[in-house]
Amino acid sequence: MSLPTEIKIEKPSKERTGTPLLEINNLKQYYPIKKGIFSKTVGHVKAVDGLSLQIYPGETLGLVGESGCGKSTTGRAIVQLEKPSEGEIIFDGKNISNFTNREMRSIRTELQIIFQDPYSSLNPRKRIGDLLSEPLLFHKLATPSEAKKKVEDMLEIVGLPKSYRNRYPHEFSGGQRQRIGIARALILNPKLIVCDEPVSALDVSIQAQVLNLLKDLQNEFNLTYLFIGHGLGAVKYISDRIAVMYLGNIVEIAKTEEMFKNPKHPYTLALLNAYPVPNPHLRGRQRIVLEGDVPSPANPPKGCKFHTRCPIAQSKCREEVPVLTGVHHSVACHFPIN
């Protein structure tokens, strides 16, 4: 008996060319902390604190970092589910951060998001067919009969039988629901999809189905992804470039291969190192185990925010904030590795 083999698909290498599809400049998202009977604001959770990045057409940018570092907040700001406290978001050449609701509606269809939890993100009282056709009808992109056809096509594309359009979400497994989430995002023909941990809630064998599907769809429809993830394996598998976040900022960003071969930020190195490798022959290798917990984003450390856990911090790190520098491989560290 041999391993089930699958065909290799040659993926054209996607070079970053021309203008970015999405550009974020100095994004800040502060949430007020309120206390007392008058709900006085006593401070702010600095969920995202001056973040800048570019995403190029057709690429997948992976976004990784520990819980609470601001990945989902960044994703929500991109698809305009929340107004940022500060900063601009330029999509397809237009500054959408100060768009009115009406202006926003015109590009709503081009920016979509897939959520982590396939259970809570689908309205349990609606049939799949209605869930999928609603946005088409709302944006007047199809007549009811065209919409019905489109829903059937879409179900087929994500690998579900057409007849499923009459079913309710609870009749599906986790992997199937996530396929429905993908179909819903895809049906409007978007340019950019923010995938917020789309496989984290799924079983390993089902994760592979969904990751393969996302890759196939990207090739077929020339999609651009921001892929937010916890599991480093999945992020590496799907991303062309990876950005590492720590406490509301990007600390390093590089091409995937380069990032794994040559991490420059001590946090990136520790993160890559902490990930348990599914290969028992590699156990017992030297590991860098970071001490302590992630500090609170309500009260981040001064200077470099990582200095409280950094094994190589020096006095400069406690005082000066490092800036993200470098063209192809950027890092925000006063003493980058090699």
Partner: peptide, 10 residues
């Protein structure tokens, strides 16, 4: 089905 660090993108 687990993507590892050694899994190639292709």
């Amino acid at each position: 089905s687990i993507p590892h660090i050694e899994t190639h993108q292709e």
